[in-house]
């Protein structure tokens, strides 16, 4: 009941500071600035092995982020992983024979889907499926492949 002018001013500034901090967190710290406006179209791609790919992993072309992974399901009839992608509408001229590969960012980084444009006249539309895919590299398979080759080499001698 005795809130004087100074108190009110300080409280106002406090609330403003708090709001500003939230704003900073939203704009400068989080991925808000790279938020797509929601105008995306849907693609699917099938892989033998998705490795460590997660929902919300990036979809890139030539290193540029053009979309996100929105779903990872398993087709138990054809024994394939089905990955759903959302790509921003402004990148809507990918040729039908575009390839999708799962790469790893950096040495310990997380995995992402990289699209490599093909040369076909037809373009991928909403709901299309990417036919050419390259699964993620699994470390154990690489190592066992390497060991196998080494053993085979040894035998030949």
């Amino acid at each position: 009941m005795k809130s004087n002018k100074t108190t009110e001013l300080m409280v106002g500034m406090f609330i403003a500071a708090g709001a500003a901090a939230l704003f900073v967190l939203a704009m400068r710290v989080s991925n808000l600035s790279s938020f797509s406006t929601g105008d995306t179209y849907h693609l699917t791609a099938r892989f033998e092995n998705v490795g460590g790919l997660k929902v919300r992993s990036a979809v890139t072309v030539g290193g540029v982020n053009v979309g996100r992974v929105t779903g990872i399901d398993y087709d138990s009839e054809r024994f394939q992983a089905v990955v759903s992608l959302e790509v921003e509408n402004r990148y809507n001229r990918f040729p039908e024979d575009t390839a999708a590969a799962i790469y790893t960012a950096g040495l310990l980084g997380e995995q992402y889907v990289a699209l490599e444009p093909g040369g076909s006249e037809e373009v991928l539309k909403d709901g299309s499926q990417i036919e050419l895919t390259q699964s993620a590299l699994v470390l154990e398979k690489l190592v066992s492949k390497f060991l196998f080759e080494k053993a085979a080499e040894g035998e030949k001698k």
């Binding site: 406090f14 708090g18 709001a19 939230l22 900073v24 710290v29």
Partner: peptide, 13 residues
């Protein structure tokens, strides 16, 4: 009301 504002300020700082 104060707690989330203070936490945001803490985080930003």
């Amino acid at each position: 009301i104060s707690m989330p504002l203070l936490a945001a300020i803490f985080s930003a700082v």
